[in-house]
Design a protein around this nucleic acid. Structure first.
Lengths: 225, 225
DNA sequence: TAGATTGTTAATCGATTAACAATC
DNA sequence: TAGATTGTTAATCGATTAACAATC
């Protein structure tokens, strides 16, 4: 039997890399569960993800003790523990701000709600967008955000606005009570300490791809990735 | 005057973190250029990005010598050099594979073509999608990819297909001559050594945000981010 | 018991920051 | 010249990997 985990209440903020891998572990564990696998070793869990067994154990050790020497990890139990660690043992009703092309796509994208991130309200500062319907939701003006945060229990906002207005919109979201921002605008956001930001910069990713392809073309050895 | 850069032809593949920051430097330099700034120091370049001056100089040193002691960096020259380093001194005609919600969004998203990544052809393995029109482009069957790669000079493909089919579609893309994949499917891809992959895993990013918000709520100090 | 596997400590590796001589 | 700033080396810091006693 696994010992009692320290639990996610204690300890320091985990490094970005660790949290990212834990997300991958949860997804892989869910795949094992669907296959009816009851127990996995750190080796077997890391293998399909290209992560070595020492790394898997070290990552898990950051959050507690979840395994049994000689046996491995109980799949459903580890899923439950890690979902608690990540804060995905409950839903996160979310707002989407900005209904340009990217925003319209994100409303319809099913990948978020499949993992508990339901988009429950849409906002845009452009009056010509307000009142329009996307995927069954009506676009509200930014002024309505504070009320929605309270009424619908919104904590997170997906920010799909142009770079120029991102900082201003972020400030309004924070003022309305949002405490987490997924920022798709290609610009750094400055927010108070109690607010978290994760940025997804698609241009940076594409430029990284261009770099790697060019490097390979020029005869370099793609050592990793 | 800056000395002759080593140029992007030599050296090892730069670490992921370095390449990501260089993308940010280029964007910041372009902002300085629009403002008419002629010369910047490593300090001034890093400041708006939250990157310290030593880091900026170290990153640039990976690719060559671009500055003048006592003066700093010439803005237009550094932009040109770094665009060469990243391989974004020319356009990258790209294919988009998979026209689900996310794929449809990516076609219309202007952020890619603004940085030289033009989507010039659409593909889907689902016959009911083939022939449909999105943003002026007609969806082609996967069989047409190899010809398009040659005819339209395509090197990159954006992969917006379900996790279940991602590996199979990636293999077909590679067989058709694509050498770079931007993978939006939440699954690792296995490709030959001459092919590069950059993955954008939106669920992992959202789960990271959930972790940080939960951590803050529970009284932790958000030390970074 | 023998084999497997954990959690953890120590060793290695790589990335960031500091310091400074050289240079404009 | 004096002040500013680079490129680079050395110092620090953090993350990954290896090793192994403890345990099932």
């Amino acid at each position: 039997m696994p010992e009692t985990p320290r639990g996610p209440l204690t300890g320091r903020l985990a490094p970005k890399a660790v949290v990212g891998r834990v997300s991958l572990y949860v997804r892989q564990l869910e795949a094992f569960q669907r296959q009816g696998v009851a127990t996995v070793s750190s080796h077997r869990l890391g293998l399909p993800l290209g992560i070595n067994d020492a790394q898997v154990r070290k990552d898990l050790a950051f959050f507690g003790q979840f395994g049994c020497p000689g046996i491995g990890y109980n799949v459903p139990q580890l899923i439950e523990s890690l979902r608690g660690v990540l804060g995905i043992d409950h839903d996160w009703p979310s707002a989407l701000i900005g209904l340009g092309h990217l925003g319209q796509a994100l409303v319809r994208y099913r990948g978020f709600s499949a993992r508990g991130f339901q988009i429950v309200a849409l906002f845009d500062s452009d009056p010509s967008k307000v009142g329009r319907d996307f995927d069954g939701l009506t676009v509200l003006p930014m002024d309505a955000l504070a009320a929605a945060v309270v009424d619908r229990g919104i904590a997170l906002a997906l920010l799909a606005v142009p770079a120029e207005s991102a900082q201003e919109v972020a400030a309004r979201a924070v003022a309305s009570g949002v405490t987490g921002l997924l920022n798709f605008a290609p610009t750094p956001l400055s927010v108070p300490a109690h607010v978290s930001v994760v940025s997804v910069d698609l241009s940076v990713q594409l430029e990284h791809l261009a770099y790697k392809v060019q490097f390979t073309r020029r005869g370099g050895v793609a050592a990793f990735g």
